[in-house]
Amino acid sequence: MAAITVRQAISDALREEMERDENVFILGEEVGVWGGTYAVTRGFHDQFGDKRIKDTPIAEAAIIGAAIGAALTGLRPIAEMMTINFAFSAFDHIVNEAPKLHYMFGGQFRVPMVIRAVGGGGRQLGATHSQTPDVIFAHFPGLKVVAPATPADSKGLLKTAIRSDDPVLFIEHSTLYQWRGEVPDGEHLVEIGVSKVQRPGKHVTLVTYSKMLQLSMEAADQLAKEGIEVEIVDLRSLRPLDMGPVLESFKKTNRCVIVEEGWRSFGVGAEVAARLYEEAFDYIDAPIKRVAQKEVPLPYNRELEQMALPQVKDIIAAVKEVL
């Protein structure tokens, strides 16, 4: 086992899959000569050349649309949205084409493609460039939405996504790339749609994913000092959503806090809470709490932006409220 960064893990997954299968190729803005604006594909252009590392014009709809078409012919494109905020410019193709084709044509078509997109706030990029709109995409059946946090999950889930015969939106977080963690040596695959307990505990179930896992871990460390043991379930995939480990944990703790970076309304917290009411009503001992982004477009000013984003102290406060 080696401790590597999320950036390295994602880069390794891409390289390994490209070396394994020559039908895998990458297209996107600045993925080649520049090396990826987050340096994930640095060196790829030299290794794989123009044919397999395709710098595109600024044309999100064409990037996703062309990836869909190429996928229909049996290729396995990895289409990169420089950030998830630009995925809105390709929204039709992401939610209205890719996820529909297999079903609508009675199973004739397959769209084996991955859309990589980085999201998240906290870098003072202003309202249009800082969003965490993951749930919007998770609304659409036919699209798989994966949003891992740790290096191991990032690598394993991306490799599985590339091998998936369905379209997968793979969401990265711009402030997680430097996060270090152990990644198993050799072939490492993680199943899509399987949640995971990232930290065992017995008092409160904390459900989260992506960047908020990092903050939740920190909150759990602090709470542990006060004798409060939080069990953290990392969803890792939003669609399909695996409630198994959440329910198992909740039946033990009877208390739940859901932490997400995106806006509260219609969010991951709303979905998970609703499912707990539906599937574990008899186990509820306290109101289920949500920690999420304040319902404002993210401002540029650093202090205001941090006020709007969920903080460790918010998570701690929410946990204490349900105890």
């Binding site: 600024i58 905020n85 630009f86 809105f88 410019s89 003072q124 990029l125 202003g126 309202a127 249009t128 460039h129 401002p299 540029y300 000013n301 205001l304």
Partner: peptide, 24 residues
């Protein structure tokens, strides 16, 4: 202070903004 570098505007000067999504 809400816009930053990419989002300057002034209706008074008939300047309708800096916009950060390419082409939008």
């Amino acid at each position: 202070g809400k816009g930053g570098s990419m989002h300057m505007a002034s209706v008074e000067h008939n300047f309708w903004g800096g916009h950060a999504i390419v082409g939008a």
